[in-house]
């Protein structure tokens, strides 16, 4: 059973639908106990870091996520879920969960032809082997929508990168946590494969 954390941060049903399509049992819940004792956790989300962190704190879900992580539960963050796993976000200067030391800067694009948000399909390059990324081939594209990106202090926690003027981390991880800045649930067959690998991952 995969537990999808409901913290009012955007459309969680698209992750649910992708898991349903793949045939993995799952539930969406805001329940603290269900999250901390979950077998597997997906932590999606779009929106502002500050709003997300306020809700996570108020409901005790931040603690529940840390608890699940420290128990060795496989946890996957997606998009905003990847960003709040770091220590801090530049967005409204928000302190975050701190599972991975690092912060989330905003794209500082000098080139006026490059748009913010970074929205659309971009190639993801695997920098370091990981079970969840095992089916990603060179040149595979994934769907991104974001203005900030996760930058771990320790480069060895960067598993994949993408380029948008600068090269930025597209997938990060530490022990039983893995997180993507892109949306696997909206990235067609290559994205679905990644969700399948997470569902079968034994860290």
């Amino acid at each position: 059973m995969i537990t999808i954390v409901d913290y009012e941060a955007g459309n969680l049903t698209s992750v649910k639908r992708a898991l349903d399509f793949l045939g993995f049992e799952n539930r969406i819940t805001p329940d603290v106990d269900l999250v901390s004792r979950a077998e597997r956790v997906i932590f999606p989300g779009v929106g502002r870091a500050r709003t997300a962190m306020n809700i996570l704190r108020k409901r005790g879900l931040g603690e529940a996520l840390l608890d699940a992580f420290s128990r060795g539960t496989p946890v996957m963050g997606i998009c905003l879920g990847a960003q709040v796993a770091l220590s801090r976000s530049e967005e409204d200067d928000t302190p975050c969960l701190g599972i991975i030391p690092g912060y989330c800067p905003r794209f500082a694009l000098d080139n006026p032809d490059l748009k913010i948000p970074h929205m659309g399909w971009n190639q993801v390059r695997v920098e370091k082997e990981h079970y969840i990324l095992k089916d990603v081939n060179p040149g595979d594209e994934f769907y991104f929508v974001h203005s900030y990106y996760p930058q771990p202090e320790d480069e060895s926690q960067v598993y994949a990168t993408a380029g948008y003027e600068t090269v930025f981390p597209a997938a990060i991880g530490r022990e039983n946590l893995f997180a993507t800045q892109f949306h696997p649930e909206k990235s067609g067959p290559v994205g679905l494969n990644l969700l399948k690998n997470f569902a079968e991952w034994r860290p």
Binding site: T13, F21, Y143, E185, K186, S187, G188, P189, L192
Partner: peptide, 8 residues
């Protein structure tokens, strides 16, 4: 559509 099509 959302249950079968996994692009935005």
């Amino acid at each position: 559509v959302a249950s079968q099509v996994f692009i935005p």
